[in-house]
Design a binder for these strands. Structure first.
Length: 1063
RNA sequence: GGGCCUGUAGCUCAGAUGGUUAGAGCGCACGCCUGAUAAGCGUGAGGUCAGUAGUUCAAUUCUACUCAGGCCCA
């Protein structure tokens, strides 16, 4: 027996039981072990940072990852997939600082690095395993990935692989220490890399200040604009553009000022232009420094030239502080300007800056409190000295913020370690061209541009919880780079004044983290090497996962080699400069290869109003809530089908409801219909298989449609267009299978004894259901499993334990001609229904005849579909009209695609001429294939191809027309038709009563009714028909049935009481 | 300021190698059908395909610019 679904299905409940089934039978494990290892498809899991709870956007990315892997499995590939967790770095440290109530970085030192790191490790493991955490989400949503052998970035093995790769880079001369302007987070007291910078731009209001720099040798000032007043203390020069036009103006209040002519709009008072001059003329002018806290050793405070100066904002003069800007630093080297660095790595002024010593340069939000920056006080100071032209705090722009603590960054000159990625930038660009990006524009555009502007990778971080930079230095700056634990063992530690070699330490004391690694020292040629204290960028960790997840090259050499590069990865667009970049950069650096061949980029998920989801707006969607309400399948299906992954998705719960009702509801309903009748007929696919060629037209049609679907689906999936693939499955199920095939074929299931025709219907519907189930399986893994089990457990046609171990079938029976035929039939039916609807003619009322005018080439197809059409529209006779039929009025329409290229400019006049052609001329073209016309004094022979002939009305009939098909319906009724209509009404009432009375579909009944004699006269003619339809053994007029089920009706003008009773 | 994407019905989205009637679902109104039945189907209202200019016999589609929104970069 096929299992029937209850009327009210609880999808979440089914999903729970499927999860159990998978677990007990190890289906996931089998989906890998049962596939040929030589036919592998490699997927890399981008490790989420295990920090806090997962959200709906994680469900999106994980659905895409999962469905591609499941699909590949179902096409025969072996798809290994290791989960991974990103466990190092600032996000974890910050979460922990919060927990420990620390307010600044130095608290960690006070607390003890060893203890801090131990806590960090505990925290990440807790986040992985906690309730409603990562493991729960992954399992509940059916994301199949190996969680038990996940790679975890904070293990010794992982770090050792990372170290190995760094040593490889060192050997290639790609690692160096440099003094550069870097984005520095004063809160976290660490530099960030440019890709981290990309993660944290925010719209903010900054100071908008115009300052007067007094010139030494004339009574005038240069007007300078800045948004960072705190950098003025380090000012050493002013830059102008040599070719920019400047003006010298006189004002009442502020005296004589120099500024760019194009920026005069900043002067809000009356002024007089005294002189116009080029920037060149200003070069060398000396000015009085604003501050002199710090003595300088070189010539400073004069006007220099800078090609970066623009007149787009400000005053057209840029103040130069070499310690705080990349342009400033570069130009200062060119002019040999002094370097003033009065700010510490934590963003505070040094004691040298007496008035502001210890003050923060920017406001910072600490865990416990906010501390204000120094800008307002500097402005106040300058104002008191009359040096401010104008000061506000209203300059709105996007400014980089720390991606984890949200505080504004400062550009800051300092020492740090770099990877020379610029050396392989061209190679990265080249390799990138071989990657299949979905969508392509992100790869060519966003990522491509990024590669072209490549800067060296700022690798080091001044933090605690992360992979240590494996570099040891001696006092001369000579370095040792450690590439493995073996090499580390050559070092020693000092314990109680004793020197102990690392190799002699117990194994569990060797922890590739701070503070242990800092203890280790090396001795070479009599010199002592100590570790440089920095960690590496956490993004380097995740970018190393292709090899580090396998502890390569220390173990698993073959596995790594056969699984590199990945065939497929999939992450959010925010990873363009994150993981996508670090994977690509490291693969290019270490292996001179790509790290992935195909990738799907997914966009943000917004709320239904298009706003970003955020806790403060309260519009965050909890994935677990969706799962409990609608189930995982509907949520997954909705996310994938509502818009392509690479377009922002507006998340609307209503959408899930609709998906569930329309697609899943229809699919399950269709299955239930099948199960109902198959059970009655004891059908189980053990019957003789009826070859497609011997099946009725409608069966061959749906089979052909099904196989066309498989073909299209496969093509789309192969090109990673998963949204379209799923939409096709849904359209087929709803429109073709349910609304046409099943509806058209219903009678075959519920009528008559079992014969070839009925068997054919069962076999056809079974195949459709089974195939649709398989196609939908990667997207909706649960309900498809349930359906597959229900179908296959009875028939035992396949011996796969799970739909996910089955194979996507190959399309083999496609009959395009037949599909086209049915399309014509469907069009005729729709047109006919439209006529009936417009004229209020119920379908239950049979009509005598209809006529169809259609192009010659399609007449044959139409006549083959006659039965389907007539039955569907309840009309007795179909007349297909010939060309020379005089009842059709024909006009001609130009076929622009043909005449356009042929006649060019004549098209306009020709169009008019064609539209004016009369019936005779059209008939002539139809008969002779051509007609001569004179257009603008040119003789033109138009042929059949040049025009399209449209039949648009039939005299005296109700007519509808569309795309070259014209349908006309004869609405005249006679007594027989009326009688038959009544009989149908009567049947309909009884069927409804059977339903209301809860009779079984196969129960036989007796019928009795009371009504007008006239109605009886009509109905009596159709007694056999009625009995047959309602399974009645007898029908009696004007008699009663004891204890029968009775109801009163109105049939046309007659009142009627009907009583039915089971036999 | 630069790059990329988006702009089609009240809403969510399709589509068109440029061809004269631009589609679907949801919502609304009115019908219909129903032995799958708390489904289904049809009809109707609703669109200057963001705007302007250009290329073309023909532009919603191609090009340029403008406007609006998003993401990214400076």
């Amino acid at each position: 027996m096929f299992k029937q679904f209850e009327e009210k299905i609880s999808y979440p409940k089914i999903e729970e039981s499927i999860l159990k089934f998978w677990k007990e039978n190890q289906i996931f494990e089998k989906s890998i072990s049962l596939r040929d290892e030589k036919n592998s498809f490699t997927f890399y899991e981008g490790p989420p940072t295990v920090n806090g709870r997962p959200g709906i956007h994680h469900v999106m990315a994980r659905t895409l990852k999962d469905l591609v892997c499941r699909y590949k499995t179902m096409t025969g590939y072996q798809v290994h997939r290791k989960a991974g967790w990103d466990t190092h770095g600032l996000p974890i440290e910050i979460a922990l600082e919060k927990e420990l109530n620390f307010s600044q970085k130095s608290d960690i030192e006070k607390y003890g690095v060893a203890e801090f790191n131990k806590k960090a490790k505990d925290l990440v493991y807790h986040h992985i395993e906690m309730k409603e955490g990562w493991r729960t989400l992954t399992e509940r949503m059916g994301y199949w990935i190996n969680l038990d052998e996940a790679y975890i970035t904070c293990t010794n093995e992982y770090i050792e692989s990372v170290w190995w790769s760094l040593k490889e880079l060192y050997k290639k001369g790609l690692i160096y220490k440099g003094f550069k302007i870097v984005p520095q987070c004063p809160h976290c007291e660490t530099p960030l890399s440019s890709h981290e910078l990309a993660l944290g731009y925010d719209e903010v209001n900054d100071p908008n200040v115009y300052i007067k720099f007094k010139l030494k040798d004339e009574d005038a000032s240069i007007l300078v604009w800045t948004t960072t007043p705190w950098t003025l203390i380090s000012n050493v020069a002013l830059a102008v553009g040599e070719d920019i036009d400047y003006v010298k103006i006189k004002t009442e209040k502020h005296g004589v000022l120099y500024l760019a002519k194009a920026r005069l709009s900043v002067i809000k008072e009356d002024f007089e232009i005294i002189e116009e001059l080029k920037g060149k003329a200003l070069l060398g002018k000396e000015y009085v420094p604003l501050f002199n806290y710090i003595p300088v050793d070189k010539k400073a405070w004069y006007v220099i030239s800078g090609d970066f100066v623009s007149t787009e904002d400000g005053s057209g003069v840029v103040h130069i502080a070499p310690a705080f800007g990349a342009d400033d630093y570069e130009v200062s080297k060119k002019y040999d300007l002094p370097f003033i660095q009065p700010v510490t790595k934590s963003g505070r002024f040094t004691d040298q800056v007496t008035d502001f010593a210890g003050r923060l340069v920017k406001s910072i939000q600490f865990q416990t409190h906010e501390e204000k920056g120094v800008d307002p006080d500097i402005i106040k100071n300058l104002k008191e000295r009359g040096l401010i032209y104008r000061a506000g705090n209203d300059y709105t722009h996007s400014y980089p913020h720390c991606w984890r603590c949200d505080n504004p960054l400062i550009y800051y000159a300092r020492d740090s370690w770099y990877i020379r990625t610029t050396e392989i930038a061209n190679r990265m660009i080249e390799l990138n061209k071989t990657i299949n990006w979905c969508p392509p524009e992100v790869g060519a555009g966003r990522f491509g541009n990024w590669l072209e502007e490549n800067k060296d990778w700022s690798l080091s971080r001044d933090r605690y919880w992360g992979t240590p930079l494996p570099i040891w230095l001696n006092e001369d700056g000579d370095m040792i780079v450690v590439g493995s634990i073996e090499e580390l063992k050559e070092g020693f530690v000092e314990r109680d004044g004793n020197k102990i070699f690392v190799k002699d330490l117990p194994k569990d004391e060797i922890d590739l983290h701070k503070p242990f690694v800092d203890e280790v020292k090396f001795e070479k040629d009599g010199k002592i090497y100590t570790r440089t204290p920095e960690l590496i960028d956490v993004w380097y960790d995740s970018g190393s996962m292709p090899f580090a997840q396998w502890h390569y090259p220390f173990e698993n050499k073959e596995i790594f080699e056969s699984n590199f590069p990945a065939d497929f990865i999939c992450e959010g667009i925010d990873q363009t400069r994150g993981w996508f970049y670090t994977l690509h950069a490291i693969a290019t650096l270490v292996f001179d290869n790509v790290a992935y061949k195909n990738l799907i980029v997914n966009e943000l998920i917004l709320d239904k109003n298009g706003l970003k989801m955020s806790k403060s707006r309260g519009n965050v969607i909890d994935p677990f809530l969706m799962f409990d309400k609608y189930g995982v399948d509907a949520t997954r299906w909705y996310l994938v089908t509502t818009s392509p992954p690479w377009k922002p998705t507006l998340f609307d719960e209503e959408g899930i409801v609709e998906v569930q009702r329309k697609f899943f509801g229809t699919l399950v309903n269709t299955y239930n219909f099948f199960a109902l009748y198959a059970n009655i007929d004891k059908f189980n696919m053990s019957e003789e298989f009826i070859p497609y060629s011997e099946r009725p037209e409608i069966d061959r049609w749906i089979i052909s449609k099904l196989h066309s679907l498989v073909k299209e689906y496969t093509e789309l999936m192969e090109s990673y267009d998963v949204t379209k693939a799923a939409r096709q499955v849904s359209n087929f199920t709803i429109d073709q299978l349910s609304n046409w095939y099943v509806r058209r074929s219903r009678r075959r299931f519920w009528k008559s004894e079992i014969n070839a025709n009925k068997l054919s219907a069962y076999q056809t519907l079974y195949e459709c259901l089974l195939t649709v189930t398989k196609l939908a399986a990667p997207f909706a893994p649960f309900i498809t499993e349930e359906l597959y089990q229900n179908l296959n457990n009875v028939t035992k046609k396949e011996n796969y334990e799970s739909v996910h171990l089955a194979y996507i079938p190959k399309p083999k029976f496609i009959d395009t001609e037949l599909e086209e035929k049915m399309e014509i039939a469907q069009r005729v039916v729709y047109l006919t229904r439209s006529i009936r609807a417009k004229n209020n003619l119920k379908v239950r009322q049979p009509l005598l005849k209809m006529m169809v005018a259609i192009d010659k080439s399609k007449r044959d197809a139409l006549s083959k579909m006659e039965d389907v059409i007539l039955e569907e529209v309840n009309i007795k006779k179909l007349i297909i009209l010939d060309d020379d039929s005089s009842i059709v009025n024909k006009t001609a329409k130009p076929n622009f695609k043909v005449i356009g290229p042929k006649y060019g400019k004549l098209v306009k006049s020709l169009t008019n001429a064609i539209k004016l052609l009369d019936g005779n001329s059209i008939a002539k073209i139809e008969k002779e294939g051509e007609l001569e016309l004179t257009i603008e004094n040119e003789k033109i022979k138009i042929t059949n191809e040049d025009i399209e002939i449209v039949s648009h009305e039939i005299e005296g009939w109700l007519v509808e027309s569309e795309e070259g098909v014209t349908v006309a319906v004869d609405t005249e009724l006679n007594e027989d038709l009326i009688a038959e209509g009544y009989a149908r009404e009567f049947v309909n009432r009884i069927q409804n009563m059977r339903k209301d009375a809860n009779f079984d579909v196969i129960d036989r009944i007796k019928v009795a009714y009371f009504s007008d004699q006239k109605l009886f006269d009509y109905l009596n003619k159709f007694n056999d028909y009625i009995s047959n339809e309602v399974l009645a053994d007898e029908i009696n007029f004007n008699s009663d049935l004891e204890k029968g089920f009775e109801q009163n009706f109105q049939i046309a003008d007659f009142n009627c009481k009907i009583i039915i009773k089971k036999v």
